[in-house]
Write a protein that binds this DNA or RNA. Structure first.
Length: 675
DNA sequence: CGTCTCTCACGTCCTGGGCCATGC
DNA sequence: GCATGGCCCAGGACGTGAGAGACG
């Protein structure tokens, strides 16, 4: 059997295993080499050794029974087998994982020995993916990107089936993920199925909001789990390429233990504390669009924003959207792509029909209450639903904290040192927004008493937690990152979160972009070729269909509406909506700077001048801002960019003024062409 | 008794649907 | 009459903080 396996360079779980005893001292999250790409990870086949499958069954039977009462039915009539109306990938409908969606998340038949469902809940993960690291091979533009694409030989795969780890990790039997190799310095494909070297049917998956994930990952992501279920933030969102456009696939996500430890937050860091309770219940969550054609999956972003995490094992309702986890355990979400028959039935007996992708930067510790205040702050800063907890919210998003030199009473020493000048860069308003947001978080006075004290992030690198080593450059240069066009999203749940997806300053930045786009005449919306600036490297992903959406966060537009709408804005967005935006601008590496400059130069106005055709494709928009757009009908006749909305003007306007003007002028223009 | 973990009420904000007004 | 713009509101999502429960 052929197994694809590529481990995200960003995260080498194997390293983690090696360091389980040392907490998170290792800086495995942020330490992405510049040349590493955001794309994926480990893709392997779900087919496993019988031993493992056996164990898996033993450990997950309950899970199946508890969480997938419908699975049996599914086996009979393969409910999942019912192809979506949009089967042929022609639909531009946004695919939300709403209430009804849940009904679609039916467990697939598990009769076949090699069926994915054989490893249900997958709390019993696949055996370690040990084996030789597969040298990335270049595709198309080897000089530019090294393909991480990994086609594991049989031999390699065989090694995965062994219960002994070459690295000495716990042998299979532990319900946690193991990854024995990583692609250090791996790269990524250009996002084009036409790219030479891409093997049809061999999927490449891109973590769309990787920047945000990395941001959290640097501090060891924590996810709240509640009885009623809590959404993930950041949520899982992917872009897929390399699928056979005509073949049908099921796509689902599961969450497995990332390691065999029980964790505890002590002394400002996560430390292992005993053995993990392997008797965990897990389940998979199918994307509501499943099954569907490869073309369909590849056309839009696939997000699981409404996926909820719960610790309520007894939760029987809505399990389709719920993943049952245990507090203080570290988990690893995985994406599975299963090729199915035209009737929707899964047939994993054939090699290569099941592919699993793991992004280690999406690892998280399940908690019932946040432990690390840095994580809390990141959540508050990036999750639109948490805006209410933002300190001085209005000023945060409309003003520049660089002016705020007087720390709040509760400011930690760290925060007090944050020099506004550090962020006071000759930049756009947007940048200020970003900086403000970030800087603000440093000043957050309300994070408990000591927020920021023992759990604070060293000033030296505000993105790194104390337990993590500081690195000169934690973020990959923008041109290295692939950030999915927001309009291409098969939303599991799209929401405002989407905004947070794309670039570091998530919600804020994307919304800015949205606002900017909104202000543009439809035909020239920058959302076309240069999706709100998510492509830092215009050529890097040139092969992919140009971004097709444009959206607006109508209601929150008042906050984000200052985004420069024109070409300049486009550049700005390119810069700040790229993952690079994640990092503190001032800390950009020289490489990043040069490339960034290059990127900035490329996206000339032409990039922003798009045709109606692209606008039309907005229909498929699926990101949060586009979600917003849906809420507002838009005028086919785009409103010319008000002079007052010129980027320059925006920059000149005081935050307040800008907000007012923008809100007034463009808040309700949307690029919503949803049919 | 202290610590740790978990639950729940709370206030804030966002989402998404609905309703009404306006203009063509 | 229809499309669009604007507003309202109920429900949902968020993190907080207090308090309860479990455990040593």
């Amino acid at each position: 059997m052929q197994v694809e396996s590529c481990v995200s360079p960003a995260s080498d779980i194997s390293k983690k295993f090696m360091n389980v005893g040392s907490g998170f001292e290792s800086s495995d999250g942020p330490e992405l080499p510049l040349e590493e790409h955001p794309i994926i990870c480990a893709s392997d086949n779900l087919e496993r050794s019988s031993t493992l499958k056996k164990n898996s069954r033993e450990m997950t039977n309950q899970s199946e029974a508890d969480n997938f009462p419908d699975s049996k039915d599914a086996s009979g009539d393969v409910q999942r087998g019912k192809l979506s109306p949009d089967l042929h990938g022609v639909s531009d409908i946004r695919h939300n994982f709403d209430g009804s969606a849940g009904e679609r998340c039916i467990f697939p038949p598990s009769a076949q020995p090699h069926s994915v469902s054989a490893a249900p809940s997958a709390m019993f993960p696949y055996p370690s993916q040990h084996g030789p690291a597969h040298p990335a091979f270049s595709i198309g533009s080897p000089s530019r990107y090294m393909a991480h694409h990994p086609v594991i030989s049989n031999g390699a795969y065989n090694s995965l089936l062994t219960n002994t780890s070459p690295q000495g990790y716990p042998a299979a039997g532990y319900p946690y993920a193991q990854y024995g190799h990583a692609y250090q310095g791996g790269a990524f494909y250009q996002f084009s199925t036409a790219q030479a070297g891409l093997v049809p049917g061999k999927a490449q998956v891109y973590l769309c909001n990787r920047a945000l994930w990395l941001k959290f990952h640097r501090h060891q992501t924590e996810m709240i789990i509640t009885k009623q279920g809590r959404r993930m933030f950041p949520f899982l969102s992917f872009n897929i390429s390399g699928l056979d456009p005509t073949a049908h696939y099921n796509i689902f996500v599961d969450v497995i233990l990332a390691d065999p430890n029980h964790w505890r937050f002590q002394g400002g860091k996560w430390v292992p504390c005993g053995k993990a309770d392997t008797n965990v219940i897990g389940n998979r969550v199918y994307h509501p669009d499943s099954p569907n054609t490869g073309a369909h999956w590849m056309r839009q972003e696939i997000s699981f924003g409404k996926l909820k995490l719960t610790n309520n094992k007894g939760a029987s309702n809505n399990t389709a959207q719920m993943v049952v986890l245990q507090s203080l355990h570290k988990y690893q979400p995985r994406l599975h792509v299963v090729e199915v028959n035209e009737d929707g039935t899964e047939d994993t007996s054939q090699p290569g029909r099941v592919q699993t992708f793991t992004f280690t930067e999406t690892q998280f510790v399940a908690v019932t209450a946040y432990q690390n205040t840095d994580i809390t702050q990141l959540k508050i800063d990036h999750n639109p639903f948490a805006k209410g907890f933002r300190d001085n919210y209005d000023t945060v998003y409309t003003g520049c904290d660089i002016d705020r030199l007087t720390p709040s009473p509760g400011d930690s020493p760290r925060s007090q040192i944050v020099p506004g000048a550090r962020y006071a860069m000759p930049s756009s308003f947007l940048q200020d927004q970003f900086v403000s947001t970030y800087a603000k978080s440093r000043f957050h006075p309300g994070m408990g008493t000591g927020p920021g004290t023992e759990r604070s992030v060293p000033l030296g690198n505000s993105l790194l937690s104390p337990q993590q080593s500081e690195e000169p450059t934690v973020d990959t240069p923008p041109q290295r990152w692939f950030v999915t066009p927001a309009n291409n999203r098969l939303d599991f749940a799209a929401s405002a979160y989407d905004a947070a997806d794309f670039a570091g300053n998530a919600a804020t930045l994307l919304s800015y972009a949205a606002a900017g786009v909104k202000a543009l005449p439809l035909p020239t919306a920058g959302c076309s070729n240069r999706p709100l600036g998510y492509y830092a490297d215009p050529s890097g992903w040139g092969g992919r269909t140009p971004p097709q959406y444009c959206g607006v966060n109508s209601k929150s537009g008042s906050v984000f509406s200052c985004w420069p709408p024109n070409a300049i804005g486009g550049r700005a967005s390119t810069s700040y909506l790229s993952e690079e935006a994640d990092s503190i601008p001032a800390e950009r590496s020289p490489i990043g700077s040069s490339e960034e400059a290059k990127a900035k130069d490329v996206p000339s106005e032409s990039n922003w001048i798009k045709t109606q055709s692209s606008i039309k494709s907005i229909d498929s928009s699926d990101s949060g801002i586009f979600e917003q757009a849906k809420r507002r009908r838009i005028s086919p006749t785009a409103t010319p960019v008000p002079e007052t909305m010129s980027p320059l003007k925006s920059e000149l306007l005081s935050p307040r003024e800008c907000e007012k003007n923008c809100t007034k002028d463009i808040t309700y223009y949307n690029f919503y062409t949803h049919s």
